[in-house]
Structure formats: structure tokens, C-alpha cells
Design a binder for these strands. Structure first.
Lengths: 262, 262
DNA sequence: TACAAACGTCTCTTGTAAGAGACGATCGCT
DNA sequence: AGCGATCGTCTCTTACAAGAGACGTTTGTA
């Protein structure tokens, strides 16, 4: 149990010191490679996931043989393999919303010049599933696959719309309510925000994760009332009211086109 | 049994009927989902990978929690999850060749109207990594991620160019030398083909995997002399000599643009 | 050239997870 | 309603993998 949640929160977390299940080792390795975003030596990998070297060698060998990982060019580093790419494409193929959502996001960022993102809940956490960087000289961009606490984002407020208070509390930890700059959010305020977002059908946050950006988010429905994802635009915080309104309009159009029911 | 051994081939050693490692169960499950290309019930999944039901439930639960799998809409079926998509995108990001290769392949199929594919070796087997279907009324298409015996394909002859005879023998099983229609290839002929392909810088096969198609393949180099992938066009077998020559020319241009050294 | 650190492989032990199977709850068919 | 098939969960046993650690090799640096 503890192990599961430790893994969920972060990979560099210490283990309980006892023996670890092989499957968990695999998950930790994958997650670690996802954070490093580059090939890494097996020894470093072992350190990174805090696993014994011998175990790491064994697990990595299995994964390389299976094609989930590949040895990188120089021969003693590993990174993701073709199999994961193929499975990932299978996921896209089987997921209309994602496939179309990617297109809409790409289109939106071309149309507006702003950074645009498609976001979803994943295992109860907020994830940027696809992002398209926009054309500003100084880009505001986020890594896809990044996990951010729900209360830090506009999208988070929409993704939780429709859940019971108890469910929301379960998904939000104490730490999640502390912003990067140290400010504290109140759970009640957050829940109020969620209700508002639900009622108005959009959510705008300013200077939440950092001091320079404003985030406009709208829901994407997979069925009437069921919010499956959000589309959002990340814009400079000093964007005028007028332009913000216009962008929100475009965003809503795109999201509506993507939604089923709503 | 048939299922088990068929899977065992792609995943690793066949099961002796004894206890199976958890990691292997995971690999089998992923591979099975890749072949079905759709969400499947856990019970059926257990049957499909020839695993005990209780084990399958446990493993699937772990994978769902980790986000590698997701429960499909109705709630009792599973398929690939967002995590696999994210890891797959990481792979693409870290792999210039694949990223650019996809573009070239897409362009080529638009330009020629024919089915175009990017192929690579994976764990010593031939894999269609990306394919773009072309515009003919009756499309000739292959599933991406499909594993085909090397001797059945034009690309296979190029991908093995530069290997020692012993290495080639190790990669090719007896079964691989039997074509789908029952004809047998001779290993020596295959090795001669490889040498020829290497010398001429392309390979054309006619009516090998089926009676209707011709396959034109050219190498993609990742370093001087190192063939990392192939690009190929799949065309009707009655395509004229002249058009075949023209297509081959286009193909070589595209592959050259993709190659580093050569 | 010598030394330290990291690499890759092996062996052996023991904690633990894979699997058999039972259980009640649902489902679907007649 | 009655029946069989499948579902999802649970318990318990033991076969086996996770891990500690030793070993020889390679790397790099003083």
C-alpha cells in the first residue's frame, strides 16, 4: 500500500527497505526514464529507482529482450523501446478523443499562436496529454506527461466538476494545496472554484503555478455531463481582457467540436 | 496451448506448464492486447494469454493503477492506457530517425499514392514501425507493429546486409523459410539475396508474402554502413517496369534524405 | 603504472508472489 | 424461476525470483 502510493507520487522516493515486487521495479524504471527524458546507464538507473544493481540488470535485460526498452547507441545506456511506441500508437488508435483532441490542440495553437494543451485525469491525477507550443518568441511550454497537482491548474477545477466532495478530498492531498511559491489554498475555496467552473463551463486562473501565466480551460465531454478531458490555452498573464475573451471563444468552439453530448 | 505457444514465441521461451514470472505475464498481456487491437474482458484476457484468472486479475489491477492499462468505457474491459501513450511519445521524441521517418513515409505515400512503410529490426525480428496506406481504391496495407519473418520481405534482405553468415543463421528459423503459400526458400538463396541487396542498395521482391504485391525497399543508414531501417513501397505486382523504376527513384531520394552517412 | 570506481556476470538464500481453487454475486438464456 | 456460465474476491501453499554480495573486467584519473 505505502509502496504503491510512494510510487504514485514520485519515483525517487525511498522504498520501505524490504523486498520489492518485480512488476513495481518495472513501473519505477519506466517512470524514471519518463522523467529523465533520455537514455541512462544501468548503474545510474539502479540508483535512480533505488534498486539493487543485480536486480536492475536482470529486469532491464528482460525489458530489452521484450523490446519495451532499447540499448542506446553507445551500448551501455537504456531508454524506451519500439514496443512502447507501438503500444502507444495502439492507444491513440483506440481513443477517438485523444486522436481528434491532438488535432484540435495543434490547430488551436497555430490559429492563436499561444501554447495549447489537452489535459486528462490519470489515476486521479492531472496530466498534460498533448501540448503544442505556440509561436511566441518566448514560449510558455510544459512537458507532456507532466503530473501537476489538481488545485494548481484551471483544468483541474473542470476535471473534478461533477464529483462529490468526498471524492475530491480523496484526490487532493495536503501538499497539493500548497502552490509552488509557498502560498496555501483552502480546500473550501478550491471546491467553490470547481462548482463555479462547472456552472460557467470554463475556468481561468492567473499566476497560479507561476507569476507570468494565465490559464484558460474548457471542458471536453465524452457523454452528456461527463467531462473526459480539458483543452486549455496558456497565455501571458498580461493578456488583455478583450483578447482573453476572444481566445476563450475560440477554445470553446474547438472543445465543443470535440465533445460528445455536453 | 496454441495460444500459449504462439505468444511464447514472441515473448520469449515457451511455458513448461509451470509457474510463470509476473513480468512475463505483463509482457504477454501487452502483446495480446496489441494483437487484438481492442478492449477485452479480463476473463477472456486470462484465456488469451493462458494464465490463471486470479493472477490475471492481480496483474491487470496493478497495471491499471499504474496507468499502463485502462478500463474501457463499460467498465469490465481493459486496453492500453495513457502511460503507454506517453512513453511511446517519449520514444519518438528521443528518436530522430523515427520522427523524421514517419514524415518521409507519409509524404511518400501521398506523393505516389502507394502504401509506404518504415521498417526496422526489433529483437532480431522484422517490424513495420509506421505505415501510411496510400490512396488506391483497394488498399494494400499492413498493421503497424506486425512481426513478419525476415525472409518473406524485401526489407528483411536489406536489414540483414552487413551481418555475418552466422548471425543471419541465428536470426532465421526453419519456419521462417517457409512462405505463407507453402513454398520453401533456401537459406543460401536468402543469403545471396542479402549480398545482392547490399551491393545494389535496394531490393525488390514479387509475390513473396502474397501473390498480388510487389515490395520495393531501400536502406536507411544511421551511420556510414549501418542500416538502421528501411523504407518500402508495397505496390500491385503488375506495376510496370517503368513505374517501378520511377517509384524506386523516389524512394531512394526520400531514404537518402533520411540517412546519416551511407 | 597504480588506484579507485563503475561495469557486467554469477551464486545462493529466503521472503513472497504466482497459482489452485473455493466462494457468493451477476449475468443470460430457456 | 431455474440453471449454467462468468464475474470479482479471497485464502493458502510452495516454487521461484529479488536481493546481497563476491568476482573479474573495464574505465578513468592522478
Amino acid at each position: 500500500m505505502q509502496d504503491g502510493s510512494a510510487l504514485a507520487v514520485s519515483v525517487g522516493q525511498k522504498t520501505g527497505g524490504s523486498r520489492e515486487k518485480g512488476l513495481n521495479r518495472v513501473l519505477e524504471i519506466l517512470e524514471f526514464l519518463h522523467t529523465t527524458q533520455r537514455a541512462i546507464g544501468i548503474g545510474d538507473l539502479a540508483k535512480g529507482v533505488n534498486a539493487p544493481r543485480s536486480t536492475t540488470y536482470t529486469v532491464v535485460r528482460s525489458l530489452v529482450e521484450a523490446g519495451l526498452l532499447e540499448m542506446a547507441g553507445d551500448g551501455n545506456r537504456v531508454y524506451f523501446g519500439k514496443k512502447l511506441y507501438l503500444y502507444g500508437m495502439d492507444y491513440v488508435r483506440g481513443n477517438d478523443l485523444l486522436r481528434r483532441g491532438r488535432q484540435e490542440v495543434d490547430h488551436l495553437s497555430r490559429e492563436t499562436g499561444e501554447t495549447s494543451e489537452l489535459c486528462m485525469l490519470q489515476s486521479g491525477r492531472y496530466t498534460i496529454v498533448h501540448s503544442s507550443p505556440g509561436t511566441r518568441p518566448f514560449r510558455i511550454s510544459s512537458a507532456t506527461g507532466l503530473q501537476i497537482p489538481l488545485p494548481w491548474t484551471a483544468s483541474g477545477r473542470l476535471l473534478l466538476a461533477g464529483l462529490e466532495r468526498a471524492d475530491i478530498e480523496a484526490m487532493v492531498s495536503e501538499d497539493d494545496l500548497t502552490l509552488p511559491d509557498g502560498r496555501r489554498l483552502l480546500l473550501d475555496d478550491f471546491i467553490t472554484d470547481i462548482a463555479t467552473a462547472r456552472a460557467t463551463g470554463y475556468c481561468v486562473t492567473s499566476g497560479l503555478v507561476d507569476a507570468y501565466t494565465k490559464c484558460l480551460a474548457v471542458p471536453v465531454f465524452s457523454a452528456p455531463g461527463k467531462i473526459e478531458a480539458t483543452m486549455c490555452l496558456v497565455v501571458p498573464i498580461d493578456t488583455s481582457e478583450e483578447r482573453t475573451g476572444n481566445l476563450l471563444g475560440l477554445l470553446r468552439d474547438r472543445a465543443a467540436r470535440l465533445s460528445i453530448g455536453g
